[in-house]
Nucleic acid binder design. Sequence first.
DNA 1: CAGTGAGCGAGCTTCCGCTTGACTT
Length: 801
Amino acid sequence: MQIDSKPIMTKNLVIVESPAKAKTIEKFLGKDYTVRSSFGHIRDLDKGDNAIDIANGFKPNYIVSPDKTKVVAELKKLAKESEMVWLASDEDREGEAISWHLFEVLGLKEENTKRIVFHEITKPAIENAIKNPRKIDKALVDAQQARRILDRLVGFELSPVLWKKVKPSLSAGRVQSVAVRLIVEREREVNQFNSVSDYRITAEFTKIGSNKPIKAELPQRYKTEQEALNFLKAASESNFTISNIEVKPAQRKAAAPFTTSTLQQEASRKLGYPVAKTMLLAQKLYEAGHITYMRTDSVNLSQTAISGAAAEINRAYGSQYSAPRNYTTKNASAQEAHEAIRPTYFENHTAGAEPQEVRLYELIWKRSIASQMANAELERTVVDINVSKANQTMRAEGEIIKFDGFLKVYLEGKDEEDEDEDAGLLPPLSQGEQLNLNQMVSEQKFSRPAPRYTEASLVKKLEELGIGRPSTYAPTISTVQKRGYVIKDNREGTPRNYQTALLKNGEIKVKTATENTGVEKSKLFPTDIGTLVTDFLNEHFGDIMDYSFTANVEKEFDEIAQGMISWTKMIDGFYKPFHKDVDKTLANAERVKGERIIGIDPESGKQISGRIGRYGPLVQIGDSEDEDKKFASLRAGQSLETLTLEQALDLFKLPRTIGEYQNLKVTAAIGRFGPYIKYGTMFASIPKDKDIFEINMEDAVEIIEAKIKSEAEKLIRSFPEDENLEILKGRWGPYIAHKKNNYKLPKDAAVDTLTYAQVMEIVSSQAKPSDKKGSKIAAESKVKPKAKAKAKAKAKAKSKK
DNA sequence: CAGTGAGCGAGCTTCCGCTTGACTT
């Protein structure tokens, strides 16, 4: 048998950014074209201090990114073998720069290089692009260089200021610092919010001879309870007559198809996914060919998509539901290099490998299909009901759907639940008709502050401000949390009384009811360090913290892209005053610790103050010179800014001695993992339903005995050869414990029969680095991720078998 | 896993935006 092993000389090499895209396009282009991917940017500024030669016109020093050397080598080889290289990176600022870097690094020549662009992955779009090549747009590349260099200058000059003036390892940047600022300011708004209340009157009427309720509301609200009660009193003596009926047709329009930002918001509202989860699932759907590219700021749909959706709508719902159209992007900062996020094949109502993917796919399918469906036709009815003795009019609203249109498949979610429920159906009514009053209610309503941000609503806000890009929303959210500036948290809320009054059968009953206020779930809260850093940056670098800073520099980037100014000039204009501020701050600013005087300790008469210490926020009794000064850490969820004297004093009540149990001291305290009981050398967490300040000996013994029991069940194996070696039962199954370090057992390990040598083999194969800090260790720790990845991959490979 | 809180002062940290695969039989 003979195999044709002649090397294929490619005529054309096409380079795109994403490998999934490369696969699709290769199919469209046929055998004369080899399509490869650059996997995004291939070069970046060097890591260290010599990345930008500031004195020499900000000359950038680019190096091929370490994880791209292989890709670059392969592309270089293919480029050499090709007659023509087509640079097909995205049509936006970053994409243009990717093409330029490829041109430079691959050593391409102008005569056999062409730059092409397309916004959608369809055969006609690609063929059209091939017919209309152009040259690399150097002005657009320069705009990207300016963007890149500005971000590096800001990030790498501001961060060291924070290391010196606040705390080591902190970071600041054009995007992240503003994101934190939004959260800090929202938190202050919430904490300083003065809730005011008013009284809302609602009623339930019935038609004479019917018992179907008609809900109505008094359009105005009363400031005082007395006014509300007066109204109820008058109503109790009133007739209720329909004074006016207004029927109006109305329409509802579908929302535009998804962009990255709106997908993240809707997946958060409807499916409860954090933004990173949404992106991971979308990536999988994209790689499997189910959806178009998931990082986009455009609501545009290709002609192929519009006709595909129309065909599916006609087939599944009928032609009266079809209303093909395109949407225009409102966001000024959008670069629109891609289509909106949509299913690749509209005939697939469902797709995805696992349940979470399926749910996300279905959301995308519904949203995209709905965007191509007819408006919903409604009929809104507003009925005015005269309350005779009060000389006031109550209002009932009804809505009927004459034609459901897009509502058949999809309705966009809301960030905040409205107080008013959706208007329901009203029975046929006529002017002058009398109604019976079933009941009337007055309720005290409190105003609410602006809601704290969720991950998704923060993305929405950032997008509105033009800060960040679709590819960075999710990473930014996780960066600010990783740096400890922000935490995603829940709050239980506090009970609050409100007044109600019920008028029924001519009688008014007044009652005080209780509601829970301030409940939060998965909301973003600033930490004390986040607040401190924000205040510091605001004071010294107000320009960069300004919400319109990005929008302003974007204008200048656009001018560079249009060839109106040179990028070095623009950067110079920015850098001179900025760097002056950096120097000034380094020279003059005090080191900040977030100090705040909270009050006086009633026992000792000494001052109680709070600040950020080496290990986080703390309170202290006595000033720094005091020899008997005492310290206590703040608890999770507390903040320096809002801590009361009472809360501070509570912190000093711990550790608290409860008593003795079997000759060993029992104390209660709060540690890194919450409240715990210490018994001898043993620690046991206090369950959530028990208060650490009130827990007694009986509770403590119960907790201790439970812990002893679970400890006894924890030990699976021990080894006579080494008393430091044990196999234990943990939350995720058996694991090896050796000299204070834990090691993973391979999934297929025979736990009951492993020999000492076998276990030690596993231990040494997962060697742990020392946790001490130092220069020597730092060098070692560079090796660590590799070793870790190795062990991980091994375990993965094994578990597959 | 369950402390500590100052100061030795080496060597480290850090940005935003584009994209996924992860060491070797």
